[in-house]
């Protein structure tokens, strides 16, 4: 290969103005093993590109799991909604139940108080009546005094 052409291409290469074809030519030249001594420095560089090109990964990326991922994401939203609903329902039931219990308890207490008051009032009126009966005797006095003072 023409050494001058290689040197020119190499200069252009470092200026970033070579075409892919020229770079291919440089690759070939440095691979050939017949490199001019003053260009040997660059041999490693091109050998590196060739080596780097052959690097391969042994791992095959899996995508089967990904099928599920949007589903999970989709489900997660609904799980959140369901959880919120459960909490909301729970709170409302709790409040409702508690307020009901309070009212029934109050009602029972009120009824009890009512009965007690009624009993007390009945007791008072009974006592009052029986005492009033005893007062009937006093009327007899009045009769006799009326007989005397006419």
């Amino acid at each position: 290969m023409d050494l001058q052409k290689i040197e020119q291409a190499l200069d252009a290469y470092f200026e970033g103005t070579t075409s892919l074809a020229e770079e291919k030519m440089l690759q070939e030249y440095f691979k050939s093993g017949k490199v001019a001594p003053h260009l040997e420095v660059y041999q490693d560089m091109f050998a590196f590109f060739a080596t780097a090109k052959s690097e391969k990964t042994s791992v095959t990326p899996k995508i089967s799991e990904t099928n599920k991922q949007p589903f999970y994401k989709y489900m997660r939203k609904w799980v959140a909604v369901a959880a919120l609903l459960v909490v909301a329902l729970g709170v409302t039931f709790f409040i409702n139940n508690n307020s009901n219990k309070i009212s029934t308890a109050e009602q029972i207490e009120a009824e009890l108080a009512f009965e007690k008051t009624k009993e007390a009032l009945n007791f008072i009126s009974y006592q009052f009546n029986s005492s009033a009966q005893n007062l009937a005797v006093i009327q007899e006095f009045e009769k006799s005094t009326n007989k005397i003072f006419k």
Binding site: T57, V59, P61, K62, I63, E65, T66, Q69, P70
Partner: peptide
């Protein structure tokens, strides 16, 4: 690098 490739594949698939 392999993890990254796996991750990029997932992203591409999604």
């Amino acid at each position: 690098a392999e993890d990254a490739v796996q991750e990029v594949f997932l992203k591409l698939w999604n």
